[in-house]
Amino acid sequence: MSQAPAFDELIHAPTRLSIVALLAASQWAEFTFVRDSLGMSDSALSKQVSILEGAGYVTVRKTGAGRSRRTHLRLSPRGRRAFSAHAAALQQIIADATAPAS
């Protein structure tokens, strides 16, 4: 995927970066899977997801009711573009640093 490098402060925060990286490799991921994979509490993950959702990077879908209620997360197309641009920016930083000085 080719994307113009663009550093994204919102994504770069370590916890949010982990969440977005996990979601980037999935279609829809269950909230509990993300929570367990990252070793976070429900409230901590909810807080970060709310921030990402507010920025339009993550879509939240709730299904079922009562005990079978499940929450699924998905990286929106906008979030996916921002993530790709951010990853490209990180690679650019490394490439610039390792390139021989002209």
């Binding site: 550093f7 770069h12 370590p14 970066l17 982990s18 969440i19 977005v20 990286a21 996990l22 979601l23 980037a24 490799a25 999935s26 991921a29 899977f33 994979s37 990853a87 990180l90 690679q91 930083i93 490394i94 640093a97 390792t98």
Partner: peptide, 25 residues
């Protein structure tokens, strides 16, 4: 941001993606 921060962030990205792929596999 310095290079080591960028490398660390990229490693974090690869780890997160590998986790999702591992789950799918």
């Amino acid at each position: 941001m310095d290079t080591s921060d960028a490398r660390e962030a990229l490693a974090q990205i690869h780890a997160g993606q590998a986790q999702a792929v591992q789950e799918a596999a």
